[in-house]
Design a protein around this nucleic acid. Structure first.
Lengths: 113, 113
DNA sequence: CCCGCATGCAATCGTTGAGTTGCAGATGGA
DNA sequence: TCCATCTGCAACTCAACGATTGCATGCGGG
């Protein structure tokens, strides 16, 4: 789950997929229905949906003849939690650095050499 | 800021950039220092750093002869907040759908046709 | 002063990814 | 039954991206 961070972000890195996700966040839609609204072909949308489904951001359900797709908020929430945790750890490290910089003491000049 | 969501996620969508960010989260490093640790060339790292700097995930500082880079946790935290908000909105919509599905009433059969 | 190291820019290469078209199968409704 | 529509798979094009090499520059230290 944690290891899938780059894949999850990559899936969210495409503007068209955000467009799709936004529509699927308002309500369940089929690939054909999305193709009627978006300026790209149904096949292209199908590929995007496959990417989104593989990372768990979209779930699909057979509904009669057609397949409707749905945006999954839980996965996005989990991602948000991970990113927040990581961001906080970076900030903590920043605090340590600032603290060391402002504390009087020997200059770290040439430490790496 | 909100409009830069796909760009921000795209920057986080590459495993190598996560590798770089992880190192820069532990402490400030120069491009050459990163190149000594990572299995790719300094130039490749430079390009990644440029991408990360453009979306605000990394800040750079001239330190004598070299330029050290630093991971910025605040930007990641802001992104996390956005994603969490969006995810929650999707879940809310889901609740509405379930509610409607479990409430007795006229079948929505053929509504879209 | 001169050497070494760190940086920046440019050209190139292979791969991945987004998007398209075409076609065949399956299914629901008139 | 017949038709319209929705789906899935395959092949193809084109641009973007990750990564490389090569070269020129600039600054610090011995």
């Amino acid at each position: 789950m944690t290891a899938a961070l780059p894949a999850l972000c990559a899936a969210l890195g495409d503007p068209t997929r955000w467009e799709i996700l936004t529509r699927l966040g308002e309500g369940p839609l089929s690939a054909s229905a999305l193709a009627r609204v978006l300026p790209i072909s149904r096949q292209a949308i199908g590929k995007h949906l496959e990417v989104l489904r593989e990372v768990g951001l979209v779930e699909s359900e057979q509904r009669g003849r057609e397949v409707v797709h749905l945006a999954v908020g839980a996965r996005l929430g989990a991602l948000a939690g991970e990113l927040d945790r990581i961001g906080r750890s970076w900030e903590t490290r920043l605090l340590r650095v600032k603290e060391a910089a402002e504390r009087p003491g020997p200059h770290p000049r040439g430490v790496t050499g």
